[in-house]
Structures are given as structure tokens and as C-alpha cells.
Design a protein around this nucleic acid. Sequence first.
DNA 1: ATTGTTGCAAACCATTTGCATACGT
DNA 2: ACGTATGCAAATGGTTTGCAACAAT
Lengths: 121, 121
Amino acid sequence: MSRSNPRVLSTLERVGGFASAQEVHKLMQREGERIGLTTVYRSLQSLLGEKIVDVLRREDGEAIYRLCGDTHHHHLVCKNCGITVEIEGGAIEKWAKSVAQEQGFRDVGHTAELFGTCADC
Amino acid sequence: MSRSNPRVLSTLERVGGFASAQEVHKLMQREGERIGLTTVYRSLQSLLGEKIVDVLRREDGEAIYRLCGDTHHHHLVCKNCGITVEIEGGAIEKWAKSVAQEQGFRDVGHTAELFGTCADC
DNA sequence: ATTGTTGCAAACCATTTGCATACGT
DNA sequence: ACGTATGCAAATGGTTTGCAACAAT
């Protein structure tokens, strides 16, 4: 087994949100780091096992990672022009917590995205 | 563009829950239907566009489909065993509506999924 | 005839794995 | 030397697409 490459972790920290393995890799390359895609994948796997990062799935199925401790937010996306507004999700956090408790689930995370038509469209 | 093959829809109806394109295809073949995997994929795409089916992602990123019920609900999924509980999302609906209004968005829909570890795992 | 439907094979793309090289101790 | 980390190339597996045969109107 491999341990996580610290440069991968620090890149993910710098991103401050979600990023796929491919994106982390591209970003690192753009910044002059010499690292293989394989290593990025292996590091993320490792960080996942150590519960240092969380994984989610994009709509297209691509895995996206973020630091566990991040204060996360949600998005309101315009279906037409694609403009995206970051929003707080306090209500959702509470809802998630209470539903989880009712059902006896632990370590509950969530995804939530809103999509509609923005004022300009 | 292609229209959805009715046998795909009826198979998904028979399943009564989530199934991936691959599973639908295998099931149909096992039952003697002569249909290609491609057609299953295309039919599911089409049903998705017509909002007749819903799509979710398994942990490994595989897309799973099921009939859209008229009652809009969300899911609480166990990351470990995959058991899924359907839950009401009254709080989310309200939250979505109020956020949308604040930002001047119209026709706002949403996705929300909860995932954690169930009581048995 | 024209249009829509099918399915094979090939392409695609994210991810994983085999293996040989390079590194750290 | 030993075990670990790396990265290339190839394999994997779900999904999409090109294209030619086929059915329907």
C-alpha cells in the first residue's frame, strides 16, 4: 500500500472545495509539480482511507474530493446560462441531522443542489 | 434521436426499485428478450429526458435508474451496505423555495441525497 | 423514399493495476 | 539490501458514438 503524497493534500487544501483527481492533477502540473496521475489517484485513495478527505460524485459520475473539515456550501445553478451562486445550507444541515437520527444512521453527509432559471434569463 | 423502447420501461417497472443499465440489460436477456445494451442505454437516456425515470449514482459511480414516483422524495443511503431509505423532504422544499426567491431564480428544482452509515453497519 | 430504431464494434474516459525503476533507511 | 513510492503503459468497466442494416410509415 502507498501513503499519501503530501503535495496532493496541500493542493486539495488550496482548492478549498471539491476537486476531482483529474483536476488536482492538472492543477499540480500547471503549477510545475512533477507528479503522475496514478500517484494522485493513489494519494486520494489513501487520504480517503484515513478519513482526511470525503468523496462525492458529480452528475456524470466523476469522483470529487474535499477535505473533511471544510465548511461546505451548496449551489444554485441556472439551467440556462450556467451561472452559479454559492449558498448557505443551514436548514439542510439540521434536516440531515434530524433525519439521520430518526433512522439510526451515523456519520451522515449530504449533497444538495438547486437548479432553476436566473433573473437574467 | 431515438425514442424509448417500451420493454425497457416495463422491465424497470417490474424491478420496482433501482437498477443500472447493465442490470436492466442482463435481466431482459435472462428473460429471453433480444435487445442490445446500446438500446437499453439509449432508452434510459430518453426516459430520463422525459422525466419518466430518475437517476442516482452508486458509490462506484455506476448510474442507477428508477421510475419517478409522483411523490417527490429523497434518499438516505448507507455507504457501507447500500440500503436506501426514502425520506420526506419538506424542509428542503421550503429552503429551496426561499433561497430561490432571494436570488431571483424561477422554476427551481433540487437534488438532495443523504449518505451515512446505517444502524446495522 | 424517408425517417426513426437497432446493435455491433469501436471509441471514450475515469479509474485501477502490473511492473519495472528510483528512493529512503 | 529491503520495503516503499512513483509513473508509465496497459487493462478494466461503464457509457457513448459511428455506422450500416433494418423496420415503419
